[in-house]
Simulated scan of single mutants.
Amino acid sequence: MARGKIEIKKIENNTNRQVTYSKRRNGIFKKAHQLSVLCDAKVSLIMFSNTGKYHEYISPSTTTKKMYDMYQNTLGFDLWSSHYERMKETMSKLKDTNNKLRKEIRQRVVGDDLDGLDINDLTILEQQMQDSLNVVRERKYHVIKTQTDTCRKRIKNLEQRNGHLRLDYDTISQLDKKSGMVENEERYESTIAYSNGVSNLYGFCAQPNNNASELGYEPHGPNCHLT
């Protein structure tokens, strides 16, 4: 049964279009390979799909560069000359931009290369430097304010911690005075002052008596107990 003719127009369905491209691409590459082998021809085939995918077929005995060179020699046309000229033009523009930026840096940083500037140029340069100075000054004040706020928060935390330690000290001091645990007030205070450097460490200098045992204090050594 003969195959029906296919109307040659763009396939609107994306999936069908991609499937058709893959099948026909493989068919073209197969024909190119046969032409290269049967006729000893130099074949170069480059294809791009509608999604930008690159596919290429080159005869086994050649390379893409050799094909370009053969094309140029046959037509007497240099494919690279126009591209080289565009590259030179781009490099020249980049050099001009770089020199301009270097000159501006010298003018703003060290006050150099000012001889060619008139009064208007100098005024504009002065205003630009003033604007830059304002930006730097604002950033400096922002950093100072941030550091100051951080220090204030640390001081507040330390004050709160100190208040808690003082409250703990007063509570334990009143408890020990009532129970007769404190034998030497100065020694007790120095022990508490030392313990303030370590969180939740309290020192007791106690007499081993019945009141202490009732309160749950078990002295170690002659007079002192650390918890």
Rank of each mutant, 00 (worst) to 15 (best):
D69K: 11
S195Q: 04
G116S: 12
V198S: 06
R24I: 04
F29P: 00
E85A: 14
N162S: 10
T62G: 00
V19S: 12
F48Y: 06
C224Q: 09
P222M: 12
E138N: 12
L122F: 07
M1V: 00
K140Y: 11
Q130Y: 12
I172W: 03
N200M: 04
M47E: 02
A193F: 03
G111M: 04
T64I: 11
K31Q: 06
S190C: 07
N157Y: 04
Q147A: 12
Y141N: 15
G180S: 02
R152T: 12
F204H: 05
A41W: 00
K66W: 13
N120P: 05
V37M: 05
Y141F: 14
D78C: 14
T171M: 03
T74S: 15
S49R: 00
E189T: 05
I192C: 07
K153E: 10
A2E: 08
N13I: 05
K65C: 07
N210M: 01
Q72R: 05
Q72V: 02
D118W: 02
F77K: 08
K42V: 14
Q130V: 13
V110L: 15
M87R: 14
V43I: 07
L226R: 07
V182S: 05
T15L: 03
R3H: 04
K103M: 06
T63S: 13
Q130D: 11
E85I: 13
L75Y: 08
Y57A: 00
C151Q: 13
T15F: 02
Y54E: 02
T97N: 13
T64F: 11
G4Y: 00
Y188P: 00
V37L: 07
M47K: 00
I172L: 10
K66L: 14
I192T: 03
E126W: 02
K140L: 12
D131S: 04
S49K: 00
K53P: 02
K100Q: 06
S44I: 04
S82L: 15
G180H: 01
D170G: 09
G180P: 02
K93T: 01
L45M: 09
Y141R: 15
R187G: 03
M67V: 04
P208C: 08
T171P: 00
N184F: 08
K31M: 12
N209C: 10
I6E: 01
H55M: 03
T123K: 10
C39F: 06
D40W: 03
I28E: 01
M1E: 02
T63A: 13
T62C: 02
S36T: 07
T74K: 12
L125D: 03
C224T: 11
T123M: 12
L122K: 15
L75C: 12
S81E: 15
L158V: 04
N223V: 06
G27L: 08
N184G: 03
Y57S: 01
E186N: 07
L133M: 09
T150S: 15
L201I: 15
K145W: 07
V19N: 11
D96C: 01
E12S: 07
L167K: 12
I11P: 06
K93R: 07
